[in-house]
Design a protein around this nucleic acid. Structure first.
Lengths: 355, 355
DNA sequence: ATGAGCGATGAAAACCATTACATCGACAGA
DNA sequence: TCTGTCGATGTAATGGTTTTCATCGCTCAT
């Protein structure tokens, strides 16, 4: 028993295949009586159109490829939600590709595979939750002919191609650190993201800018390395112990959460002993102990905006990048400077910042 | 400038399209000299084969559909990882479909869409991280002709079709509760999952069985409702306050984490005042405060196994369901019964936690 | 009457690759 | 020299749909 084709339906309904196709796509141009006969035949045979044949003929797959660096990262899921809403409203399918955390051998192969999908015609366009300038993506696509349109989200640099959706990461980081400064903190450390990630530099820059604006000098020994993972948050605790900042600004929430549990186990209390700010406002940030002060990105909106942008490009319109607003969400992990802290302050005193 | 076809390559290389195709798929049967000429032409034109044409001709899409109830749930991502590894080893693409949390209007439309992909020939098979008996899936596929093979993972009932990969949820729940009983707990509550989910019944049954085996009678007022979300874990705190169990077994980790933060805010300490067991061992379970005792499912292995199963079915072999082992992971959220529990203790006063 | 206009339908080309089969030349064995 | 084999390549059918253009039978205005 093989899959019925449009021809089977046509035969049973006693019409031509053209009419069957019209019944399915432009029902109003075919006579009611005929339409009924055809739809009956469709039901009777259990017909479903062949997607491959359709794409081949239409030269379009009605699919959009979404490349995610790590599907396990809860940060991305809400973006995906926003994308999905807009995509399905437009009748498009989302093909999600997970490249896996970079630097692993596996991820390289997957990246290649996803680039190929794009070149293959498997997708009509792509949404990249990654830097389009990353070598794996940029090089093979640079002079590809007939490359479908691409919109990059979140991880975008100053010259990340023509169309991007992002927040002002530097500004957000600056706001986060300024919040700490306003609380009276003077020794503020930053736990950075992975070297290779473009967001790392942006958030670090924001951290430094905030210090500068408050008249302080960034101290290199308070810039801790990290990689966005729980473990590197835990590792940051050792550095914390060595350098004794009164507050830490983490480049993402996951690291902040890793720090939180390690600190707790070591008897260090947040925010009594140290204040913590994260970045992203992931799902669990509200139910950490204590709940996490962090930067919220309008994730769902970012996804939706990017998808709309892609659709407009597909419709032939001129693209324009979008920058969306962020929020500083103040929760329980930040408070004033602990008593007595700052005795040995290295970053020294200046009056409270503009607040 | 339009996409080059195989014909363009053939013309430039001065061969027939058949030879080009052979160069790409069975390079060894074509003369080295010819091969070089063809590969040069491929590079020169920037040719990529058209996926739609290929699927149409081969009657196979080299794609597997993975339907996930909620991509934001970290529980699923590791399963996806396991699937991906096996899939890409076999040269298959993963098409991930997120149906969204059930009960929302949107999810209905997406479910339909994914069923259609299956019937469409967009995928050669499907992995379902959901109950294949769910109405949205079962009804439209029941008598579809030429339905590709399907393997269900995790959320499977006794008659969930022929091929499934799962753990013994009832047994795991029983083990979790038995652990609490062994610690001396006698008033043990269960926070269940959503009604509609098949896992809910299985884990509840395990809870009851453990009580029964220990000679206790399950008390209906200690069976709290839940929906797998953070918020329902928080809501369970009110019920906890009313009914005073000395321990709670949650049907998943996310609810346990919701409870944890609410309890903390209310001054109730875990495990001093109440012991907590979750289910799933999600990423953040290790960095809760305190770290969460839970049931670990071999998620990556489940995904990989399911994918291998699907491949073997596609290869024409007879399928057989697989049941994988689970682990009880004992961490910091469980301890013996608090002193004086069982009286009308108002919890409050007791010495500071171990910090 | 006649032809223009219109609605409904059919015939056939086009989309691009894979693959069974045919062809061709060269070479070995008889 | 002839035949059989073999390796390399070409020819052409095939897959299922969409879409353009043609056709056909009407009606309505002239």
């Amino acid at each position: 028993m093989t899959r019925p084709t449009i021809e089977d339906v046509a035969r049973i309904a006693g019409v031509s295949i053209a009419t069957v196709s019209r019944c399915l796509h432009m029902p109003d141009v075919v006579a009611v009586k005929t339409r009924e006969r055809v739809l009956n035949a469709v039901r009777q045979t259990g017909y479903n159109l062949n997607a491959a044949a359709q794409s081949l003929r239409q030269r379009r797959s009605n699919t959009v490829l979404v490349v995610v660096p790590d599907i396990g990262n809860t940060f991305f899921s809400e973006i995906l939600g926003g994308i999905e809403t807009e995509a399905s409203a437009a009748g498009l399918t989302m093909l999600i590709g997970d490249t896996g955390r970079s630097d692993t051998g596996r991820s390289r192969a997957r990246e290649d595979a996803y680039v190929r999908y794009l070149l293959n015609g498997r997708a009509d366009g792509a949404l990249l939750l990654a830097d389009p300038q990353a070598a794996w993506f940029d090089i093979p696509t640079r002079n590809a002919v007939g490359l479908p349109p691409i919109v990059a989200i979140s991880e975008v640099g100053p010259q990340s191609g023509p169309v991007t959706v992002s927040i002002d990461n530097e500004g957000a980081a600056c706001a986060a650190v300024t919040h700490l400064i306003a609380l009276g903190h003077r020794r503020i450390a930053h736990v950075a993201g992975p070297q290779s990630n473009i967001l790392t530099a942006q958030r670090l820059a924001g951290y430094r800018r905030a210090l500068g604006e408050a008249g302080m000098t960034p101290a290199p020994d308070l810039e801790f390395p990290g990689d966005f993972g729980l473990a590197s948050g835990r590792a940051a605790f050792d550095l914390f112990r060595d350098h004794r900042p009164s507050a830490l600004f983490f480049a993402n929430d996951e690291m902040a959460m890793g720090f939180l549990s390690t600190a707790y186990a070591a008897g260090v209390r947040v925010p009594r002993d140290v204040s913590i700010v994260g970045f992203d406002d992931i799902h669990f940030a509200q139910s950490c102990i204590p709940s996490l002060t962090t930067i919220r990105q309008p994730r769902s909106e970012m996804g939706a905006t990017a998808m709309r942008l892609l659709l407009s490009i597909l419709a032939g319109q001129a693209p324009a990048s979008v920058r969306l607003p962020f929020d500083l969400v103040i929760r329980g992990s930040t408070a004033g400077v602990p008593d007595g802290h700052g005795a040995d302050t290295r970053m020294a005193s200046s009056p409270a910042p503009r607040g």
